[in-house]
Amino acid sequence: MQREVKFAGFGGQGILSAGKFYGEAGMEEGKEVAWVPSYGPEMRGGTAYCTVVIADHPIGSPIVNNPQDLVAMNRPSLEKFEPTIRAGGFILINSSLIPDRVKRKDVIEILVPCNEEAMKLGNNKAANMIILGAYAQCSGMLKLESIIDIVKTEFQRKPQFIDSNIACIMRGAEIAKREMENKN
C-alpha cells in the first residue's frame, strides 16, 4: 500500500509545512515516509510544491511523476499538475483563490474555501491547515488525531496557535467529508 500526494501553491502559503506535518503524522503511525521538495530558484516567489509518499513498505523511488492526489492552493498549481494525477485520485482545490474547476472526469474534485474558512476561525495564516485536514479526511491513509498530535508538537513553542490550528484541521476535515458525501 502506497499513496502519494503533491502539495502545491505559492511560496509562503505554508504548503511545505502542510506536507511536512502530513509526513510526520505518517511516521508517527509507523508508516514509511518520503517528503520530496522542489528546490532552488523556482522556490523564490513562484510555485512551491512537495510530494509526500506514505507507504507500509520501504519506499523505492521517492520521485513520483504521477502521484495519486493533488492539493492545489493556487491556480498555476492546478493548471500545472492536474494532468499528472493518476486516475481515481483526489484533487483538492482551494476555492478561495482558484475560480477554475477540474477538467478531467476520472478524478475526484474537492472544493475547499481555505482562506475564508481560516479567516472565519480567526487564523488567516492557517489556510494550509484547512487543506491539510481536508486532505487527511479524503485520503484516509492517516488518522486525524495523528495530525493533531503533530500540530501540538510543532507549535510547542507557540502554544497560542495550537487551538486555532487544530480547529482549522477539524474544519477542513468536516468540509471534505461533506463534499464527499454530496458526491455519493
Binding site: K20, V33, A34, Y39, I59, P62
Partner: peptide, 10 residues
C-alpha cells in the same frame, strides 16, 4: 545527491 540532501525521511 541533491535528492538525498533535500528530501525528508524518518
Amino acid at each position: 545527491d541533491g535528492l538525498i540532501g533535500q528530501m525528508m525521511e524518518p
